[in-house]
């Protein structure tokens, strides 16, 4: 849930070097939009792609790939 999805993503990104890729698994629809937006706003990372890894209704999961800026 917000803001913890972004908090954990941010803490992980802070440990990476520029250009490294972080994979983030989310099960919360609005976070799929909010997390990359916040990463961009804070110049932390840019979104490479989003993949729906579990399409089951009510149990959807997405995988985001973020590139550390």
């Amino acid at each position: 849930m917000c803001p913890m999805t972004f908090v954990y993503t941010k803490l992980a990104l802070e440990k990476l070097k520029t250009g490294e890729i972080l994979e983030v698994l989310l099960d919360f629809r609005s976070a799929v939009k909010n997390v990359p937006e916040n990463c961009k706003r804070q110049s932390l990372a840019e979104l490479l792609d989003v993949r729906l890894v579990n399409p089951k209704k009510g149990a959807e999961e997405w995988e985001l790939r973020l590139k550390k800026i």
């Binding site: 913890m4 941010k10 916040n38």
Partner: peptide, 23 residues
């Protein structure tokens, strides 16, 4: 290393661009 309890407790300031885990 921030503990789970610390991440939760300070989450509203860690979110800030000016703070983060490093801050």
């Amino acid at each position: 290393e921030l503990s789970e309890e610390q991440i939760e407790r300070y989450s509203r300031q860690i979110v800030l661009k000016e703070v983060g885990g490093i801050g």
